[in-house]
């Protein structure tokens, strides 16, 4: 780091220009900006919670089912309080770290595993491809919910098991799409050309197939981030995911269900939080896909004019 020789400068400059360009491209997309702001708020909230700066999460019978938007109260009670008088906003923030953490780890696991297996199955085909696809069929033969229920029943509903179960159940979708895309890409001329030039399979996969498949896989992953978060919420809602006294947004909806006609906010806000967060992930991933796809750069550029 101390020795900055001349030949490193252009590269550094290129990098800083790239970051500047990315920021400018982000500014051109108001939805992506909104998503970034929401996620920053969520991350900041999780951070303050992990430093236990929020404090006040005691049961308080005086605040039982306190309605929201009563700004005369302390700010933690602005979204109301639950049946035990705990401030809903603080509970929401505590649930955020569980829900988001599980979703991110799960999607990364199934994205990496699924893309690799799918590309291999599509490019090489043969016995390996058939075995991979048949295993996919077997997993898909189980309804996702059933696999999840089984897994959580067998190993107990813990955070680690939830991640494993969700990652395994989501992987076949990635494998099938990656394989379908690869089947299409490998028939194209530039792959034939690469093969004619004597490129090895690993090299062709890395430089030609993977970059062509990546945009679709990222789109799928963005939608899947939503799906996994929703699945975790669904399982927690059914009482098979996160267990009390831990909180997740899905569990909070379930706890609020009984008060649907008397205290709607108990079920409303956690669900809204799930929706806004998954939507932000989606919007950002979408933006990211456009940025990473040179054939779509014209959209960002034309927007700036």
């Amino acid at each position: 780091m101390t020795d900055t020789s001349a030949e490193f400068l252009p590269a550094r400059e290129r990098r800083s220009r790239r970051i500047l360009w990315l920021l400018r491209a982000l500014a051109g997309d108001p939805m992506a900006v909104a998503a970034t702001i929401w996620l920053l708020i969520v991350v900041l909230a999780i951070f303050t919670d992990s430093l236990s700066l929020l404090g006040d999460n005691r049961i308080s019978l005086k605040a039982r089912n306190l309605p929201p938007f009563d700004f005369g109260q302390s700010w933690t009670l602005w979204l109301g309080a639950d049946a035990l008088g705990r401030p809903l906003l603080v509970r929401l923030i505590q649930a955020a770290s569980t829900t988001i953490g599980i979703a991110v780890v799960t999607v990364l696991t199934s994205l990496i595993g699924g893309t690799l297996l799918g590309v291999i199955a599509g490019y090489f085909g043969g016995v390996v491809g058939n075995v991979i696809m048949r295993i996919c069929d077997i997993i898909l033969g189980f309804p996702t919910l059933l696999v999840a229920l089984f897994g959580l029943y067998l190993f107990g509903p813990s955070v680690g098991n939830l991640v494993i179960v969700l990652a395994v159940t989501r992987m076949p979708a990635y494998i099938r799409v990656a394989r379908a895309e690869t089947l299409e890409v490998r028939e194209r001329l530039f792959v034939d050309a690469a093969r004619a030039f004597g490129g090895g399979p690993t090299w062709i996969l890395r430089t030609h197939i993977l970059p062509s498949v990546a945009p679709t896989m990222l789109t799928l992953a963005s939608v899947n981030l939503a799906m996994v978060m929703l699945f975790e919420s669904g399982l927690s809602y059914l009482g098979l995911g996160i267990q009390p006294p831990s909180v997740s947004w899905g569990l909070m909806v379930a706890q609020g269900q009984g008060y649907l006609s008397s205290a709607w906010w108990l079920g409303f806000f956690p669900g809204l939080a799930v929706m806004l967060t998954t939507m932000s992930f989606n919007l950002l991933a979408n933006w990211f896909r456009i940025v990473n796809d040179p054939s779509q750069h014209w959209r960002l550029v034309s927007r700036r004019r």
Partner: peptide, 16 residues
């Protein structure tokens, strides 16, 4: 994006 992000059970409860 909103449709893909809404939890179905929550949508159900809000519908109810």
């Amino acid at each position: 994006q909103a449709a893909a992000s809404v939890p179905d059970f929550w949508l159900g409860l809000m519908g109810v």
